[in-house]
Simulated assay, not measured.
Amino acid sequence: MSSNLSATPVLITVRSLSAGAASGRLTCGGLDVACALGRGGITRDKREGDGAAPAGRFALLTVYYRADRVARPRTRLPVTELHPWMGWCDAPDHPRYNHLVTRPFTASHEAMWRDDHLYDIVVVLDCNLRPAVRGRGSAIFFHLARPGYPPTEGCVAVKEQDMRHILERCGPGAAICID
């Protein structure tokens, strides 16, 4: 592990470029990079399907990655390989709402094993998880951005190189503040 792996909890700050903007700036220590936000900008009243990133401070919980595509991220956060059977329930009425599920899965869910590269590295944020409140948003992640930083469905996204630099600094207590 590199000397960049600090024992001090890291705070990542995300701000939109303007009210309702789907793009922003992410800062982490001395790093200041572009990021994509939800197509609905940032909201203080998150609802399932609104396409907005939720305002608030959220712990970084688990890093997932596609071992068939990218190297394991260097971080002190828990890291798990993604597999084709992994999904994330986005059905508000289901008992597994906003949690990892095993595919095939009959209720509405998002595949974690994607054809695009957005989840080649993806971090689960502690947003509406404990407990998951029906309809208050699911699958709120910190993940990789598409080229050109088009809007996400409600997540924060950065390019892979920036994600790797950020995760190298992160360990227990790391959080993202979306404002």
Rank of each mutant, 00 (worst) to 15 (best):
Leu60Asp: 03
Asp90Leu: 01
Thr8Ile: 12
Gly40Ser: 00
Ala157Ser: 11
Phe105Cys: 02
Gly173Leu: 02
Cys89Asp: 13
Gly30Ser: 15
Glu168Lys: 15
Arg96Gln: 13
Thr152Met: 08
His109Asp: 02
Ala36Ile: 00
Cys155Asp: 01
Val133Cys: 10
Tyr97Thr: 01
Ala107Tyr: 08
Ala36Trp: 06
Ala55Ser: 09
Gly24Ser: 07
Cys170Met: 03
His117Thr: 13
Tyr64Ala: 01
Ser3Asp: 04
Pro73Val: 02
Cys170Tyr: 13
Thr80Asn: 08
Leu17Trp: 10
Pro131Val: 06
Arg76Pro: 07
Lys159Val: 03
Val158Gly: 09
Val156Tyr: 10
Gly173Cys: 01
Arg76Ile: 01
Pro95Thr: 09
Val70Gly: 13
Pro92Cys: 05
Ala71Arg: 15
Pro9Val: 01
Asp116Arg: 15
Val14Cys: 05
Pro151Trp: 11
Phe105Tyr: 15
Leu144Lys: 07
Val79Gly: 14
Glu168Ala: 10
Cys155Gln: 11
Tyr149Thr: 04
Thr152His: 11
His83Ala: 14
Phe105Ile: 01
Arg103Asp: 00
Met163Gln: 03
Arg146Pro: 01
Ala34Lys: 15
Ala111Gln: 11
Gly171Asp: 05
Val156Pro: 11
Arg39Trp: 00
Ala107Gln: 12
Asp90Ile: 04
Gly30Glu: 15
Ile178Val: 07
Leu100Gly: 06
Val124Thr: 14
Thr80Gly: 00
Leu37Thr: 12
Val123Met: 09
Lys159Thr: 00
Met112Pro: 08
Val79Phe: 11
Val123Ala: 02
Val10Asn: 15
Pro150Gln: 09
Pro172Ser: 11
Leu82Lys: 15
Val156His: 08
Ala67Gly: 09
Ala132Glu: 07
His99Gly: 03
Leu167Arg: 13
His109Phe: 10
Trp85Ile: 07
Ile176Gly: 06
Ala67Thr: 03
Leu129Ala: 08
Arg39Met: 02
